[in-house]
Amino acid sequence: MTDAGDRIGLACPSCSPEAETVHEVIRPGGHATVRCTACDHTHKAEVVEPETTALTIVVSQDGESFTTEMDVPTAGVVATGEEFVVDTAEALMEVRITGIELGPERRVEEAPIDDVETLWTRAVDNVSVDVTLHPKDGDADQTRSLRLTVPGDTEFEVGETVEFGDEEFSVEGLQIRDDAPAYRHEKLDHPGDLAYAKDLKRLYARDETLTAWSAW
């Protein structure tokens, strides 16, 4: 249901009678009192509440997962790779759809929301990125790994030097996740190639940390 303070799209009789503008709900109801945010005109408007359905959503994050339920508009279509915000009692989380289940053993890439039984998703607002670090001297026996926790929209670019805490490294390759939107290749390794942290399966880099290989 629409509540006071919510923002909705409506035609404004003062400044935009033919096209919708953003309105703030002042007093909710079937004939709500709303204010146009474009011109501050306050007027009455019929607010039709969309039909909703309860949808089961499985959210995966850093190897763990939890299940929640959310009311979503019945009209519309969902597809793998799309992102949306899950509103749970614990937090608001931005997630990406990784699987659409219509029933037992029935998974598809796209479907009307009304046909969906469960959405499988992965949290992408904050993500962990696995990094393989090669030593400066090229000794493969001393290759090591670390894990970075960063906002999902953090950009990594091949050729750039990155600092995280005491770590410093130059990016050499970006391994793209299977559920990421279309990239040029599955692995990016040309200078200037760029990807977001939420799209990365692994990052390959050359260690630039001065004390990384000290025996002490």
Rank of each mutant, 00 (worst) to 15 (best):
T2Q: 06
R7Q: 11
L10H: 05
C12L: 00
S14C: 07
P17H: 06
H23V: 05
P28D: 04
G30R: 14
H31N: 14
A32Q: 03
T37S: 09
A38M: 08
D40M: 12
H41Y: 08
K44T: 14
L55S: 02
T56R: 15
T56K: 14
T56Y: 06
V59A: 02
S60N: 10
D62K: 13
E64F: 09
F66T: 04
E69I: 08
D71I: 02
A75F: 12
T80F: 01
T80R: 09
G81S: 06
V86G: 00
T88L: 06
A91H: 13
E94H: 04
G99C: 03
G103V: 00
P104V: 04
E105I: 03
E105R: 13
V108N: 11
E110D: 13
A111N: 08
P112L: 05
D115Y: 09
T121F: 05
N126F: 11
S128L: 02
P135D: 08
D137V: 03
D137A: 04
D137M: 09
T149M: 01
T149P: 04
V158L: 06
E160A: 11
E160D: 14
V162N: 00
F169M: 08
F169R: 08
S170I: 12
V171H: 04
G173M: 04
G173A: 14
L174H: 03
L174V: 06
Q175C: 08
D189W: 10
D193N: 10
D193Q: 05
L203Q: 02
E208Y: 06
T209N: 05
W216I: 10
